[in-house]
């Protein structure tokens, strides 16, 4: 008589694995490990996780002006202590965090939510580009400078070019973050394109 096939993993576990493995960077094996880990923990700790996830979905807000994620309605863009005449345009929220961590920037942000990429069907209308223009037009005090801090990829460059073209028509000063050799990096290991560009856009030493 053939042996009965074990019904493994059980359906509930299978469900959990499937949901977790949908997360980026997590495959089925890691998902299984996480599920078994969670089952071994105190009940409380998994409950904390589910509460955190539920709250994340229900209470998180996107600022209607700059589109940053926040849990209060007091977004940086309403804080008078920041420089209200400068807007830094970034692709996504993690970029805001990265720039904030430098403590070098006191102005406002504008999160586009992506970059223009026709292959993926993303056009300017799918991004927060129009809201950037209307925000600048309505600004008081008037916005004087827009800093483009987009990734130096083809799509990032295209998006920057498009925005610049429209902003120039509004008579706004548009700048872009410098590109070149990372601090602490060895010159000989820099790629040709970066090195070439940093030679072309060299700055006066003082």
């Amino acid at each position: 008589m053939p042996a009965t096939i074990l019904n493994f993993p059980p359906k509930i576990v299978e469900n959990a694995i499937e949901e977790i493995s949908k997360l980026p960077g997590i495959g089925r094996k890691t998902a299984l490990r996480l599920v078994l880990y969670l089952l071994k923990q105190e009940k409380e700790s998994t409950e904390n996780l589910t509460t955190a996830l539920t709250q994340l979905r229900e209470d998180i807000q996107y600022c209607g002006t700059c589109h940053i994620i926040s849990d209060t309605t007091d977004c940086t863009c309403r804080t008078v202590t920041r420089d209200l005449t400068t807007i830094c345009v970034v692709q996504d929220t993690p970029d805001v965090m990265a720039i904030e961590n430098t403590h070098q920037y006191k102005g406002l942000y504008h999160v586009l939510g992506g970059v223009i990429s026709p292959i993926e069907g993303i056009g300017p209308e799918d991004l927060h580009i129009d809201s950037l223009f209307s925000r600048i037009e309505k600004s008081d005090p008037k916005v004087e400078e827009v800093i483009l801090a987009l990734s130096p990829t083809m799509e990032g460059d295209t998006t920057a070019f498009y925005i610049t073209k429209k902003l120039k028509a509004l008579g706004i000063k548009v700048t872009t973050i410098a590109r070149g050799i990372p601090i602490g990096g060895e010159l000989e290991y820099a790629d040709e394109v970066t090195l070439g560009r940093s030679i072309l856009t060299r700055t006066i030493y003082d």
């Binding site: 026709p118 292959i119 300017p124 799509e155």
Partner: peptide, 24 residues
């Protein structure tokens, strides 16, 4: 590939944006 995708989208949506085509 990006420029061709954009041209296709212009045709499908029956619109044209010179400022968007130019960077490509």
């Amino acid at each position: 590939k990006q420029r061709n995708s954009l041209l296709k989208q212009f045709a499908e949506q029956d619109r044209f944006d010179a400022d968007l085509l130019e960077p490509f």
